[in-house]
């Protein structure tokens, strides 16, 4: 059997223009590669911006002064530049946030992946997504005008701006992050491990606490680290609720100023480019960037190093 190819006629109808195809292929490829490189450019831009202005800052303020002084008053005539004043505030609010969000987020994740029926899950997941999507300025409103007055009824000497309510609401804001990332990690633990516990006579709780959670530990820890990193970089809640009083120490009842709140405070003022106040923005930003970057890199490394692989 032979086919007769309708050679001459078909070429009239269909003439693929290979050259155009190849050119458009090349254009698309190189254009999209350029787009992908925008993200690398962003990173380089961030790092160069921070490094450049930070070097300028350290030409005026020596590094040891930055690291050892116990006051942060860069805008006053008697200027001091102790970064740990701001770092201690950030540490305080983030620690309170983690103390709220770690147990709640983790238990919520366990409930979602181990106990909730599919119907309940379908309702709870979007609620958590909405909670995750609430803008931080709204959380700030909640912290300053609802949580603080409420807490003041219980703790009379709580001041109007304080690290406690900022930290608590900051914790609420990172619950969805911990819950969803931990749930992914718990969900990835294979069913056979749970069945193994049941076969040995274990209860459901025992399968969770003794087998599932250890197996998912790398993912859970990574989610906690990422959440802390998020809390450290969070701005509006702490700016609104914790105040703008740079103060060294860990008293949660008094106004403090975190690194992010300081950046906002200076940005709102009329700061001339090139002034020392302008340069402090970048020195504080650099400190913030280094802390969060370290945490992020550590969390990626942790997952890679300790992930349990199941076939």
């Amino acid at each position: 059997m032979t086919f007769e190819l309708p050679s001459s006629r078909s070429s009239d109808l269909w003439q693929p223009n290979r050259q155009v195809s190849q050119i458009s292929e090349g254009v698309a490829k190189s254009l999209f590669m350029l787009f992908a490189l925008v993200s690398v450019g962003t990173t380089i831009g961030i790092i160069l911006t921070l490094i450049f202005e930070t070097i300028e800052f350290f030409k005026i303020v020596p590094l040891w002064q930055f690291l050892t002084e116990d006051r942060w008053t860069p805008l006053f005539a008697d200027a001091h530049f102790g970064i740990f004043v701001l770092v201690s505030a950030t540490f305080l609010t983030s620690t309170i946030a983690l103390m709220v969000a770690a147990p709640v987020g983790l238990l919520a994740a366990i409930y979602l992946s181990e106990y909730a029926s599919p119907g309940v899950r379908r309702w709870l997941k979007p609620i958590l997504e909405i909670l995750a999507g609430v803008p931080s300025v709204v959380y700030g409103y909640f912290a300053l005008l609802f949580v603080t007055p409420l807490l003041q009824k219980i703790i009379p000497n709580l001041q109007g701006f304080n690290g406690l309510s900022a930290g608590l609401v900051l914790g609420v804001s990172i619950i969805p992050l911990i819950a969803s990332l931990s749930e992914d990690a718990i969900y990835a633990v294979p069913r056979s491990l749970r069945d193994g516990v049941y076969a040995l006579g274990g209860t459901k709780r025992e399968s969770i606490t003794s087998v599932v959670l250890p197996a998912a530990l790398s993912g859970i820890v990574a989610s906690l680290i990422l959440a802390v990193s998020r809390a450290i970089g969070e701005t509006m809640i702490v700016t609104l609720a914790a105040g703008q009083n740079p103060r060294l120490g860990f008293n949660p009842l008094v106004p403090i100023e975190t690194m992010t709140a300081y950046i906002v405070q200076v940005s709102l003022g009329d700061t001339a480019a090139g002034s020392l106040a302008y340069k402090t923005l970048f020195a504080v930003g650099m400190t913030l960037f280094l802390i969060t970057l370290t945490l992020n890199v550590f969390s990626f490394w942790f997952v890679r190093r300790f992930r349990e692989k199941y076939e």
Binding site: A36, L37, S39, V40, T42, T43, G45, I46, T49, L50, F52, E53, L226, S229, R230, I232, G233, E234, T235, T260, I263, V264, S267, L281, F282, G285, L288, F289, T292, L293, L295, N296, V297, F300
Partner: peptide, 25 residues
Amino acid sequence: RIIEININNLAGVPSIIYGLLGLQL
């Protein structure tokens, strides 16, 4: 690979740092 690692890290940079980039750039 570099672009991928880079994107992962960018997603973790606090938004206020982007503000500093924007201010300068």
